[in-house]
Simulated assay, not measured.
Amino acid sequence: MQQPLRIASLTVLAMLAFAGNSLLCRLALRDTTIDAASFTSIRLVSGAVMLAILMAGRGARPWTAGTWPAAAMLFAYAVTFSFAYRQLTAATGALLLFGAVQITMLGYGLATGERLQGLQWLGLSVAVAGLVGLLLPGIAAPPLMGAAFMLAAGAAWGVYSLLGRGVTDPVAGTAGNFLRAVPFTIALSLATTAQASFDATGILYAVASGAITSGLGYVFWYAALPAFKAASAATVQLSVPALAALGGVLLLAEPLSPRLLIASVAILGGIALVILRRR
């Protein structure tokens, strides 16, 4: 396969996988009996097993990379992500998650001395206004608790991404972090045993989310990432909420409200302006 086609294929697969995480989680928690804690545990363990197998195939030990702080953030993201999707649609959840991730990382940059130019401040203001507008009370507003969980998930993923900057082998680092997240998820399962419930279909969705759309999705993305400049890579990821929204409408029969459409344009457009002007 020619190199440009290979990069394009890996990128498309990665973005579909990332959007698939939202669809699988929402589908499992809406249409099966699995609870959010069990979904989280099965997802993380499945992802750890898949990545450990891939690392073993490379002749490497999965524990040689990754850190405990990053694993804690990975767990925090996964558990709040699952609890959020008990109430949110796939599109709303993906948009809140992406917005929170980018604003967390931009906020860290500003706190550590990064300076934004005029159009970047405009883009950031528009993105924040889009988030606020989406969450304002009203008939089309998402449930407050679900939205709070997803914003927390985005913040945790933003910190996780910041902790992973400069990692020389991101696949190995991701494998190590997933394995280190397993003890956290075992503790979660023990703490929620009384409320645990699941069925075969719910387990299947959780395994697919962990092993395929998480584990393999990260591998696809990290394989394509070296071909992108930083701004291009960040811009490509703007497609994930749009893909999740499309999947929610076509596969889950979820409504797409005018409020969500306007917020999507504001959040994604504002973040795109910051990213593109930065480079």
Rank of each mutant, 00 (worst) to 15 (best):
A70R: 01
A70W: 05
A70S: 14
A70N: 08
A72I: 13
A72F: 15
A72T: 15
M73T: 08
M73L: 06
F75N: 02
A76R: 04
A76H: 06
A76P: 10
A78C: 04
F81V: 12
F81Y: 12
F81G: 12
S82L: 09
S82P: 12
F83S: 00
A84H: 10
A84P: 05
R86Q: 15
Q87Y: 14
L88R: 12
T89C: 00
T89K: 10
T89A: 12
A90K: 02
T92N: 13
T92M: 15
G93F: 12
G93K: 11
A94V: 06
L95N: 03
L96F: 08
L96T: 13
L97R: 13
L97Q: 15
F98S: 08
F98P: 00
G99D: 05
G99A: 14
V101F: 05
V101A: 06
Q102H: 13
Q102K: 03
I103H: 03
I103A: 14
T104V: 12
T104E: 02
M105H: 08
M105F: 07
M105W: 11
G107F: 08
G107C: 08
Y108P: 01
L110R: 00
A111P: 01
T112N: 09
T112D: 04
G113T: 13
E114C: 03
L116M: 14
L116F: 13
G118K: 12
L119W: 11
L119H: 12
Q120I: 04
Q120S: 03
Q120T: 03
W121K: 01
L124V: 08
S125W: 00
V126C: 09
A127D: 13
V128H: 04
V128N: 05
A129P: 01
A129C: 02
G130A: 03
G130M: 02
G130T: 13
L131Q: 13
L131I: 07
L131A: 05
V132N: 04
V132W: 01
V132P: 07
G133V: 11
L136S: 02
L136F: 10
P137Q: 05
G138L: 03
G138C: 04
G138T: 11
G138K: 02
G138E: 11
I139K: 15
A140E: 15
A141F: 07
A141G: 08
P142D: 09
P142Q: 05
P143M: 13
P143R: 05
P143S: 07
L144P: 04
L144A: 15
G146E: 00
A148N: 05
A148Q: 02
A148L: 15
A148P: 01
F149H: 06
L151V: 10
A152M: 14
A152N: 07
A152E: 07
A153V: 09
A153E: 12
G154H: 11
G154A: 11
G154Y: 11
A155H: 04
A155N: 01
A156D: 05
A156Q: 05
W157Q: 04
G158A: 02
G158E: 03
V159I: 15
V159G: 00
L162C: 02
L163I: 14
L163Q: 13
R165C: 03
D169F: 06
D169Y: 01
D169L: 08
P170N: 07
P170S: 01
P170C: 09
P170M: 07
A172G: 14
G173L: 00
T174L: 02
T174I: 02
T174Q: 14
G176T: 06
G176S: 07
N177V: 02
N177E: 12
F178Q: 10
F178K: 04
F178R: 05
